[in-house]
Design a protein around this nucleic acid. Structure first.
Length: 275
DNA sequence: CTCCGGGAAC
DNA sequence: GTTCCCGGAG
């Protein structure tokens, strides 16, 4: 009986368990059939805070509409935003197009291959930079997201609460496959998704666990409605938008934010999506 | 720290 | 009605 949960033999058993689950229960996901860095990028941005089942059809349609990094960079923002409707977090659509433009301008039309360079792209933070490096370029980066967090909380911190990621990351680094990093992380995510179905959500024991405020009646809801309206009509008057809410002051405030963030253009009383 | 979307499972 | 989602920016 090994006392140390992180002993060499424990880690070896853990790895074997994850690989075994992957062999038997691997999910067949569209972005696992490609090594195209652009396709990986699109999938990872879409998957930020968004369930796999909801991303799959959007991912495929998006790549039909914008087949290459160059096509995305050249496309009107309003077209990108239109494709994005239903996914939520419209800022991601903006960041994704800006990232494409950045790569065209600074990396000769390709995505950079290192974590440090990837993180410089808009919308790409610590997780996504490490994930693209692992999935597209097979680098043994260290990354954590909700499924991976679940796996390690379940396997190594089953009796602990308020576990910070900084405590988990060294174990992730100690267990990552040097030779098959991308596959390893896919296997971890599949195992984590499986654990959530069978054991509930261990992430509530993470130090970083938070519940988000309610959506109905929120600024986010109204903001989303405004953006969707604009993708449908291309141009709309302020009085027409006022029917979305009885709080004109809140509407004007959100419109100001959308304008500053580069989502919309205001010309007098006429409002349209930015190009 | 707060903000950001929206559909679906529960 | 509540929770969750292969997070990131300001």
């Amino acid at each position: 009986m090994k006392k140390d949960k992180c002993s060499a033999s424990s880690l070896k058993n853990f790895r074997a368990k994850v690989w075994r689950h992957y062999r038997l229960r691997k999910r067949d996901l569209p972005w696992r059939h490609t090594k195209n860095p652009y396709h990986i990028l699109v999938s990872e941005i879409m998957l930020q805070q968004t369930q796999v089942d909801r991303v799959i059809p959007k991912f495929q349609q998006f790549l039909l509409t914008f087949p290459t990094l160059k096509a995305l960079a050249a496309a009107p923002f309003s077209d990108v935003l239109e494709q994005w409707q239903g996914l939520g977090y419209n800022r991601r659509a903006k960041y994704l197009k800006l990232a494409a433009e950045y790569a065209i301008k600074n990396h000769r039309g390709r995505l950079p291959e290192t974590e440090v360079e990837l993180k410089k792209l808009p919308g790409i933070g610590p997780y996504t930079a490490a994930a693209i490096a692992a999935f597209a370029f097979n680098q043994p980066t260290v990354l954590i997201e909700t499924n991976i967090r679940t796996v390690f909380l379940h396997e190594f911190f089953s009796n602990e609460t308020d576990v910070p990621d900084s405590t988990i990351l060294p174990i992730i680094a100690a267990t990552v496959s040097r030779r098959r990093a991308g596959e390893w992380y896919q296997a971890l995510m599949d195992f984590g998704a499986h654990l959530k179905k069978t054991h509930g959500n261990a992430n509530r024991r993470s130090l970083h666990y938070t519940k988000q405020s309610s959506f109905t009646g929120s600024n986010r809801q109204l903001r989303g409605q405004i953006v969707r309206e604009l993708t449908l009509t291309s141009s709309i008057s302020l009085p027409a938008l006022k029917r979305l809410t009885n709080n004109d002051r809140r509407l004007v405030k959100i419109l100001g934010q959308l304008e500053r963030e580069g989502f919309i253009l205001k010309a007098g009383n006429s409002i349209s999506l930015a190009l």
